[in-house]
């Protein structure tokens, strides 16, 4: 009984120490990534290539998801508001929800699933096949050449993808509200224009997506670089990227919302 209890305490202690040590490694790694950004000044092509891979190749899923989220939002808003004769406010509900919450959060979740997991798998596979070690032995810093461009591409891509998600979502909302449900297009746009504030809604949404992009990219590149270089280790690292990334997004969203919109 006592042995079992001690064993559990030991395990808890070991797990805590491992987690703290990983967090420390992740922070040191982030500093190295920041330092490594300098390499892109002489090789901007590295960043452009990664912007295509991380940003452009995630675009389709963002556009499709944005369109349907906007359409569903419009339908739900209409059904809720029509009973009160306030259906003209559908656009306000759609636009504010997208700009403040759904745009940044859903984009970040999709980004973690699509681009984040790909970044982890790519870097992890390079580690498993000794490509990173090979670069080190060629006197080339892999953090500068491989990790830093991918990290920066993730940070840059996220706000742009979130903006596209929200824009397409609004278009989806317009299609449902105006074309399908027959609301007045003038009322749709004027209500939205009257209620949306540039800094408070659009600006804060962009800040949120920038923070999410930073955190998800950090988790993705660290998990890839720190993974156990086996097929099992690679699988676990990819899973961790999606799980930790998604949880971090949701937790940070709460914190940021409280800070930005709290009275």
């Amino acid at each position: 009984m006592l042995d079992s209890l001690l064993d559990q305490i030991q395990r808890l202690g070991r797990g805590t120490l491992t987690a703290i040590s990983r967090l420390g490694r992740a922070n040191l790694f982030l500093i190295e990534v920041f330092v490594g950004q300098g390499g892109m000044l002489t090789r901007p092509g590295l960043l452009i290539k990664q912007l295509f891979s991380v940003g452009v190749q995630t675009l389709i899923i963002i556009v499709v998801a944005g369109l349907f989220v906007g359409m569903v939002m419009a339908l739900q808003a209409y059904y809720a508001l029509v009973d009160f004769g306030a259906e003209d406010s559908v656009s306000v509900m759609v636009v504010l929800s997208l700009l403040r919450e759904l745009g940044p959060v859903i984009t970040a979740l999709l980004f973690a699933g699509r681009a984040g997991s790909a970044l982890t798998a790519e870097i992890g596979l390079m580690k498993a096949t000794e490509q990173l070690s090979g670069m080190e032995m060629m006197a080339v810093n892999p953090i500068e050449r491989v990790v830093a461009p991918r990290f920066l591409a993730g940070v840059i891509s996220m706000p742009i993808l979130a903006a596209i998600f929200s824009a397409v979502g609004v278009m989806g909302g317009y299609l449902v509200a105006v074309e399908l449900l027959g609301l007045d297009p003038g009322a749709f746009w004027s209500q939205a224009q009257a209620k949306v504030e540039l800094y408070k809604d659009l600006g804060n949404g962009m800040i949120k997506s920038l923070v999410f992009g930073f955190v998800v990219s950090w988790i993705a590149v660290f998990e890839g670089y720190d993974c156990v270089p086996t097929s099992e280790g690679l699988g676990q690292a990819t899973t961790r990227t999606v799980v930790y990334g998604s949880l971090a997004i949701l937790i940070l969203d709460f914190v940021l919302t409280a800070l930005m919109f709290g009275k």
Partner: peptide, 13 residues
């Protein structure tokens, strides 16, 4: 000034 040949070749894929 060192060259290294890894077991897998370690070519950039």
């Amino acid at each position: 000034r060192m060259g290294m040949l890894f077991q897998s070749g370690a070519l950039l894929t």
